[in-house]
Design a protein around this nucleic acid. Structure first.
Length: 488
RNA sequence: GGCCCCGUCGUCUAGCGGCCUAGGACUCUGGCUUCUCAAGCCAGCUACGAGGGUUCGAAUCCCUUCGGGGCUACCA
């Protein structure tokens, strides 16, 4: 807890070396949910200390993605906060001050070993079956030796001294975990060019930003002793260490980590494919966590109410696109008409089915109710409604044969005759007329008779409900299309 | 190799010593409904990795083993 406000402070601190992916977002979601559940603060921090891999575009994309998902942060980029700046690249002075302090305290030391030298020695260690890791060569350099190395033109990294002993901490998800320092070698805090590494920045920031809970991926579990070592060097009281909780992985179809090869990882992809942010969050929440009872379809609000770290699983979960789709379909069906319209419009415009005129929007609004329970992703909307807007209507190639036979012609001709004089053009009147003529009088099976009409009017064998579709299309267009089909 | 983490239906999970002949969801299969496609409803298939203990009793506790994963960078 923050000793002043007694409030929980959780941070999501991605390193934007690419688009945020499913695993990142699951972590962000849990961070956010935990902060909201406890009434604490959700802090968003950008870990951009690796300047060779992080780009401004990725940072902007990360901000955009989090916004889109509705994971509003209380402190961080664009919103500020009392412990900023929240981009590590803007906190460089802070890190070098601490590094200097560690040097002065002899907790850290200059190391002049080159990458090549380190590499050769590591190989040797492996060959002789010794645990690879820094061997301590530069641990106790004299002032003269340092001068000599500098004279050689060598640059130095700043390395943290790992004392003998062990580090034990309680992970909220996994329980007590202990690491013998024999397996935690001295690690680099500052690069040869003076820039800080994650190992330094993450620990300094979590302390200085008064972070109380660190919920992050389990890949960082074994780096925890190093963070704790930095806390000690910073002279932080143990009760002010953040509480750690290492979240299980989200994995791909095979049991490797989720990656491009076995399922889409980029959240941007899901957004374009028409997944709803609340569906993504709902599904992701179920990966590694569950509300406990048999409820699965929950709102963001319910998630914040129900989420506790105690209920987070320790075992990895496989990402299942099928289940995401099922939840997405549920969420789409639950949308109000206005909301559905707002979300569907961009997809229709992007697919160039409509331009966005008032008349078009009005027709879309009228049509959405009949497709709402038929789609599972928003990007299916354009194909579903295309028949209502297409300028040069033609029957799909594969379907032409299905309405070219004599009996189909008879059905269509009869339908045209019955519909032409119809006064009231509504789905009920259209159905009544066609049913009585085609089914009762001609004695046809509904699927045969209506199938032919469907193809002639919508262009294909699969469409929204026929009579509603015809009502939306309007009388003159329907008659024209049926005539056109008869002439095929 | 070493260290660390993990192990219930195909998948996500419920289960925290007796309520479990293991429940739910997704998937799959069959059926109902039906103007196509969906949606909805009903039914069915399928799991405690293995072996030892502890206990009157174990999916639940302990040990071993096997399997999977992470880390082992001047990445995070």
């Amino acid at each position: 807890m923050d000793e002043v406000t007694n409030k929980v402070r959780v941070r999501f601190a991605p390193s934007p070396t690419g688009d945020l992916h499913v695993g990142n977002i699951r972590t962000a979601l849990f961070d956010w949910a935990y902060a909201r559940h406890t009434g604490g603060s959700f802090i968003f921090r950008i870990e951009d200390t690796d300047t060779t891999r992080v780009t401004d575009e990725y940072i902007a994309a990360a901000i955009d993605t989090l916004r889109w998902l509705g994971l509003q942060w209380d402190e961080g980029p664009e919103v500020g906060g009392s412990y900023g700046p929240y981009l590590q690249s803007q906190r460089l002075d802070i890190y070098s001050d601490w590094a200097q302090k560690f040097l002065d305290q002899k907790d850290a030391y200059y190391c002049f070993c080159t990458s090549e030298e380190l590499e050769t020695r590591r190989e040797a260690q492996k060959a002789s079956n010794v645990a690879p890791g820094y061997d301590g060569q530069c641990r106790n350099l004299s002032a003269d030796q340092i001068v000599a190395f500098r004279a050689e033109g060598r640059t130095a990294v700043i390395r943290m001294r790992m004392p003998d002993g062990h580090t034990t901490f309680v992970d909220q998800i996994r329980g007590e975990i202990s690491f013998d320092h024999k397996y935690v070698p001295d690690f680099v805090l500052v690069r040869g060019d003076g820039s800080p590494l994650y190992t330094l920045a993450v620990a300094v920031d979590d302390i200085m930003m008064k972070v109380t809970h660190v919920l992050r991926g389990e890949d960082l579990l074994s780096s925890t002793p190093r963070q704790i070592r930095v806390y000690q060097a910073m002279d932080v009281a143990i009760e002010n260490y953040p509480i750690f909780a290492h979240l299980p992985f989200v994995m791909g179809q095979d049991n490797a980590k989720l990656s491009k090869r076995n399922g889409e990882v980029s959240i941007a992809w899901y957004r374009e494919a028409g997944y709803l942010p609340e569906a993504i969050c709902n599904y992701l929440a179920l990966l590694g966590w569950s509300p406990g009872d048999d409820v699965e379809n929950i709102s963001m609000q319910q998630l914040t109410e129900l989420f506790t770290v105690e209920r987070v699983n320790s075992s990895p979960a496989r990402f299942d696109m099928k289940k995401l789709e099922a939840i997405n379909g549920d969420k789409i069906r639950a949308l109000t008409l206005d909301d559905f319209l707002d979300r569907a419009l961009p997809f229709l415009i992007r697919a160039e089915v409509i331009e966005g005129t008032a008349a078009e929007i009005q027709l879309v609004q009228a049509a959405l109710p009949i497709i709402q329970e038929r789609i599972t992703r928003l990007n299916e909307v354009p194909a579903m409604l295309k028949f209502l807007f297409v300028k040069d209507f033609v029957v799909e190639q594969d379907s032409v044969a299905k309405i070219s036979d004599a009996s189909s012609k008879q059905v269509l001709t009869r339908a045209l005759d019955e519909l032409a004089p119809l006064q009231e053009w509504s789905n009920t009147s259209i159905e009544a007329v066609l049913r009585s003529a085609l089914i009762e009088e001609l004695g046809l099976k509904p699927r045969i008779a209506f199938g032919a009409v469907r193809i002639s009017v919508t262009g294909g064998p699969i469409s929204p409900p026929l009579f509603e579709s015809m009502e939306l299309l309007g009388k003159s267009v329907c008659l024209a299309r049926i005539s056109q089909a008869i002439a095929l």
